[in-house]
Design a protein around this nucleic acid. Structure first.
Length: 412
DNA sequence: CTTCCGGATCG
DNA sequence: CGATCCGGAAG
């Protein structure tokens, strides 16, 4: 943290004084950058990069512990390599470097840690690209019976490879941009669901599901490692949108990992799809689990703009929240959670929508919007994101704060 | 619509 | 004078 602080300072400083001197390399690399505006952009990215380092670090600590996406994906990738064609491999390769490759950053010292941090979130983003290949079973639902690999990768391929090598944005991306551009990315967890009749088994690894199908459904017990690829038709890949506690902090959230793991198996067996002959209606069948998965996991979603959609922090089981107020001190590692606003501002009652959350209310609502209110809002005096998180963690601020608008997280 | 920021205003 | 955030511009 300390170091990030310093770097931040450094950056800001350099930003103001001499960009060009500090980042001559960058300037040269990107020939396209001509106008100052763009230059600023770039530098901004730099700033973002460095800034996010510490965030990533934190994220790593908290998130990495309960997210095992990377490993799972890896195994699946390897497996796929065997089956899917080389083209597929190429595509994924051409895609990933973009995401992973650490841009040539002149900022020596930082780049190290940057890379470090960058790797972690890349798992999230990479899962993003993975979900690409998966959609093939959405648009081209051929999972259970027909050969899928061949035609599924084709469309994908053409789409992913716009033939021309590096375009402007890409180039700049490679150079300066980072995989995690300040906007958090939602992490996806990939699971594999058995499509066998009456079996909704969901496993986290392709290998696992294959083995499951092989042994349980195909009855190939003996040669457990032998695979003729048939299992492929009996399972599908599903993506769970785990919440990215964007601002990286351990989501003190009510959702326990076990819960999130448990939920998937529930949706895979939707009545509708089951009633219909699975084989015949593969299409709908596939769509269903996918579309279902969203809502199911949705409840674990929590935007960092908690203030907006929050009311509901409706997570079954979580009856109470730490009183926000000024007790932000709870540790800034868990800020995004909660905060149902609780704005008591007379003029902004409508913000609260349902007043359900306030049972033990004080009669604050009494004060009516007096006719000519002072044009300016009283201005909250509570802590503001800026104060709480500081410039270094600007991306932890609530959106409003970032936009220089009235803070929505620490309303008073 | 989202994002950004100049500058008025408040404390 | 720094912090906040309105108003409005830009993308």
């Amino acid at each position: 943290m300390t170091f990030s602080f310093q770097s931040e300072d450094l950056k800001r400083d350099s930003n103001k004084k001499s960009h060009q001197h500090l980042f001559p390399l960058a300037m040269e690399e990107d020939v396209k950058i001509t106008d100052t505006k763009k230059t600023n952009r770039v530098l901004d990215h730099e700033k973002e990069n460095t800034r996010s380092i510490c965030l990533l670090e934190q994220k790593r600590k908290v998130v990495s512990s309960n997210i095992d996406v990377p490993p799972a994906r890896k195994s699946s990738e390897e497996l796929d390599m065997d089956k899917v064609t080389a083209a597929m491999v190429l595509t994924s390769l051409s895609t990933s470097p973009l995401v992973r490759s650490p841009p040539v950053r002149p900022n020596e010292g930082l780049s190290g840690s940057w890379k470090e941090g960058g790797c972690v979130p890349s798992s999230t983003s990479s899962s993003g690209y993975w979900s690409w290949s998966a959609p093939s079973d959405q648009s081209n639902p051929s999972t259970p019976s027909p050969p899928l690999s061949a035609d599924s990768f084709k469309p994908f391929r053409t789409q992913a490879q716009p033939d021309d090598g590096i375009d402007e944005s890409e180039a700049s991306n490679l150079l300066f941009d980072e995989p995690i551009p300040r906007k958090r990315k939602n992490s996806m967890k990939v699971m594999f669901k058995c499509l066998w009749k009456n079996c909704g088994k969901v496993l986290s690894t392709a290998a696992g599901i294959q083995k499951h199908i092989r042994t349980i459904h195909l009855g190939r017990v003996g040669d457990s490692d032998y695979s003729d690829g048939e299992e492929d038709f009996y399972y599908t890949e599903i993506k769970l949108n785990t919440e990215s506690v964007a601002d990286g902090l351990g989501s003190p959230a009510p959702v326990s990992p076990s819960q999130s793991l448990a939920s998937p198996p529930t949706f895979p067996i939707p009545e509708s799809s089951r009633t219909e002959t699975p084989c015949a209606k593969t299409e709908t069948k596939l769509m269903t689990p996918l579309s279902r998965s969203a809502p199911t996991t949705l409840y674990l979603v929590h935007t960092d703009h908690a203030y907006q959609a929050t009311p509901p922090v409706t997570i079954p089981g979580s009856a109470k929240f730490t009183p926000n107020g000024s007790s932000f001190s709870i540790s800034w590692q868990s800020p995004p959670v909660t905060f149902t606003g609780i704005p008591v501002s007379p003029t902004h009652n409508h913000l609260m929508g349902t007043g359900e959350q306030r049972q033990h209310t004080h009669t604050v609502l009494s004060s009516p919007p007096r006719g000519t209110v002072s044009l300016r809002k009283p201005r909250g005096e509570g802590k503001k994101c800026r104060k709480v998180y500081g410039m270094e963690n600007r991306d932890m601020w609530c959106t409003s704060c970032r936009w220089k608008k009235a803070c929505q997280r620490f309303i008073d």
